[in-house]
Amino acid sequence: MTRKSYDKGTIADLVDGVLPWKQVKDMMSSYKDPDRFIKYLEVLQERVPWSDRILLPLGPHLFIVQKEDGRIVTKSRSGFEFGDYRKNWKLKARIFVRKTKEQYREIYTEMTHADPEWMEMREFYDPLDGTLLDIETVPPAYPLVHSFEPDLDTFYTQWLGRSYRNDN
C-alpha cells in the first residue's frame, strides 16, 4: 500500500481552509499520511506568536504546550495561559451566558432558539482578545463540560513511540 505524504504548504492550506475542494476530497479518500502530525505541528508552531512548544492542538485557537520550565499548560493563540492541561481550560476563561430571549435573538429569529427556562447558552471567550473559543448549550446548573482530556503519555510514548517531556 502506498502512503501519501503532503508538503507543509498543502497542510498549511488545509489549516487555513483554502485548499481546493478536489484536493480535500482526495485527502479524504486516500489512506492517511502518517507524517501528518509532525508537519501539522510545524505549521502551527510557525504561526503562533510565542515560542512554547505545541504538543497537541485542541482547536483553532487552543493548544497544549510545554513551557521552557517543563510545565504543560493549555494556551491560546493570543498567549493566554489557562493552567495545567489536565484541568478544564474553561475554568480560567471568561463566560457570557445567553439566558433571555433578547440575548438569543441576537443570533436567532423568534421561535427558533432554545427556551431560556430549558436551556442556556454559555459562550467562552479568550480573556485577552475576546475570541469565541467554545459554546455549551446545556440546561441551567449543568456542570461545565470538560470536552477533551487527552492521555498525552499514552499518545506520545505508546502510539507515536517518542518522548515529549522536556524536564528542564
Partner: peptide, 16 residues
Amino acid sequence: HVFPSGGLFGGYPNPT
C-alpha cells in the same frame, strides 16, 4: 425548546 447539542470550536448550534 432546546439545542440538542452545540456547534464546534465556538460555532453556534442550528436553530430550534
